[in-house]
Amino acid sequence: MEFSPFNPIVKLCLQGMGMEENSQPQKAVELFLQVWNEATNNFEKFLAAHYIARHQKTVSDKLKWLETALEHALKINDDSVKSALPALYLHIAQCYKELNAEKAKEYAELANLYKNNPADKGPFYHGTKADLQIGDLLTAGGNSNYKSEFKMNHIYFTALVNGAGLAAALAKGDAPERVYVVEPTGNYENDPNLTDKKFPGNPTRSYRSEAPLKIVGEITDWQRPAPEELQKFREKLADNKGEIIN
């Protein structure tokens, strides 16, 4: 399963989040319920239940939807969903604080258990317009691919080839888009700019490292976004003030 911002269900979720940001919670709930009704797989059901849960008025109703989200998440053997488990277990634990102290402790322990380093073993990809060779090292400290005025303290990569392709398409410059296969040479962590932000966990399987990435190959067969979708992403980047670009 590859998370995509172009998926119709994901688009509905984004619309619902937009309603939340515009202080229209009722319209947001209606959209999330539409997501629930139109969901066709466990991942989409998991997303819908997650968003519906946060609009519930009582602890018991919130807990019911969180446990529904967990039920569907546990049916998916995928690193993008596993990354959501720590926060999901923690939210359930917080609900149980008012209902069952023993269960609250149990879920809090599960949250800590799943909070360790990413389990994702790749393969990993980095999208750019730079012309690089196998064996080259990508290092932190350079300028951002998207806003050249920002220095990067980390080097970023993803386990989704199409996600790397989108990054390449958005990178500044007129050179051809390149998606390289990379290997981390040191420890890496979930990208905090994305993890548990708009979506639960790290569905884009995006990571960052202070250690170099070694280029071990190149991918040419990846899905390029439609021009209109690409333009939307460019507009979002143009509006960014740098708070999520490290």
Rank of each mutant, 00 (worst) to 15 (best):
F6N: 14
F6G: 10
C13E: 03
C13M: 02
C13P: 00
L14W: 04
G18P: 07
N22R: 12
N22V: 03
Q24F: 09
P25N: 03
Q26N: 06
E30V: 01
F32H: 12
F32K: 13
V35M: 10
E38T: 03
N42K: 13
E44C: 14
A48P: 12
Y51F: 15
I52E: 05
A53G: 04
T58H: 02
W65P: 08
E67C: 15
E67L: 15
A69G: 08
L70T: 01
A73V: 02
K75M: 11
I76W: 11
I76V: 04
D79K: 10
S80H: 11
L85Q: 01
H91P: 06
I92C: 04
Q94E: 14
Q94H: 13
Y96T: 00
E98C: 04
L99H: 07
K103R: 13
E106I: 01
E106L: 14
A108D: 13
N112Y: 00
A119E: 13
D120C: 15
P123S: 10
T128K: 05
L137R: 11
L138P: 09
G141S: 07
Y146E: 08
K147W: 03
K147S: 02
N153M: 14
F157I: 00
T158D: 06
L160M: 10
N162K: 08
N162Y: 05
G165P: 05
L166N: 06
L166D: 01
L166H: 07
A167N: 15
A167V: 02
G173Y: 03
Y180S: 12
V182D: 05
V182S: 09
P184K: 05
T185V: 01
D191S: 11
N193Y: 13
N193H: 14
D196N: 15
N202F: 04
T204L: 10
K214F: 04
V216S: 12
V216R: 08
I219A: 11
W222R: 11
W222F: 15
A226Y: 13
K236E: 15
L237G: 04
E243I: 09
